[in-house]
Amino acid sequence: MNEDHQLKHLVKKAREFQSMGNYLHSVQILTSIINNYPEYTDAYFQLAEIHEKLGNINPSVNYFNNYLEKYPANKEVRLFFGKYLLKNEKYDEAIETLSYFMPEEEPDIAFLLGLAHFKLQDFEIAKIYFLSFLTNVNDTELRAESFFMLFKIEIGLNNFEQALSYSKRIESVYNRNWEFNYLLAKTYLNLNMFTHAITPVERAARLNPKESLIYELAGRIYFKTCEYDKAEKNFLKFLETAEETNPDIYLNLGESCLKLNKFGRALDYFKAVLKIEPENQAAIKGAQIAVNKLKE
């Protein structure tokens, strides 16, 4: 049995152990391969998969770093490792790993670097990489995803006019995506295009009814369109579904109830705000209005 065939046989055996849940034996085989045949990359890839399943990727990170010190120009390993780091939210390390190549050499690098910088909220740098990617790649799926990322970046930069422009380029692709519709509604809200915001926020709620942020946004939109009953309903839905809340929600509920002449309920919401923020002037003013209305 030649050496390459023997190594493939060992990797296959390790995968069989992995499929049976016997990770220890699989790790032992793969680690032995790496120690004795450090250039054999298949063992690194499979070991990385196991470490990820076990919730501890640090050993694989060390193995990949050691490998790339010896073979820095191996594009396959560097791309795999960069994606692996991104997937496991190690964005700074991903940037360091992927920056070895120029984006012009490997266009996918620009996309991945853009994604890493976006996750770090380095929006301006992320924007440069995605625009660079779009000038060098014709892949339809990744181009659409890049425009989606640019849409999100412009929102992050509060450039809502530009965000709306990007949204038009991908609306047909992402029309059934809840996040796209949520962000589109948010864009319209910030452009004071309140009526336009209703359709996408309602679609987002239908597509992902468990996402609490949608109801908070819907409440704000309906408040702006003077549909106060719908605003109240959505703010309450937010309270039902959110893991955490903030005084602004109770303030919004209080103001909605004032508009609906539900003064007792409004007062309760303003008091809830004041328990958290005793100096909140909007809540103090709202509570006083509610008290005066109850006395009439």
Rank of each mutant, 00 (worst) to 15 (best):
E3P: 14
Q6P: 04
L7T: 09
K8F: 06
K13I: 06
R15E: 05
F17M: 02
S19Y: 02
M20C: 11
G21A: 05
Q28V: 05
T31G: 15
I34Y: 07
N35H: 13
T41C: 12
T41F: 13
D42L: 10
Y44T: 11
Q46R: 12
L47H: 06
L47E: 08
I50W: 14
H51L: 10
E52H: 14
L54Q: 15
G55N: 06
N56P: 02
N56D: 12
I57G: 11
I57W: 08
P59D: 10
P59Y: 00
Y63I: 10
K70G: 12
Y71H: 15
K75A: 12
E76V: 10
E76C: 02
E93S: 11
E96I: 01
A110D: 02
L112K: 00
H117F: 03
L120R: 06
I125S: 03
I128K: 12
T135V: 09
D139R: 02
T140S: 11
R143L: 06
S146T: 02
F147R: 15
I153Y: 07
E154G: 07
G156S: 11
E161M: 07
R169L: 09
I170V: 12
S172N: 14
E179K: 03
F180C: 06
L184V: 00
Y188L: 04
L189Y: 14
M193D: 07
F194M: 03
T195A: 08
A204W: 08
Y215F: 10
E216T: 09
I221P: 00
Y222Q: 09
C226W: 13
E227M: 05
A231M: 02
N234G: 11
N234A: 11
T241W: 13
E244I: 15
P247I: 01
N252M: 08
L253I: 05
E255F: 10
L258W: 04
K259L: 13
N261W: 07
N261S: 13
R265V: 12
F270E: 04
N280C: 02
Q281R: 08
I284D: 08
K285F: 01
N292E: 15
K293G: 08
K295R: 07
K295M: 09
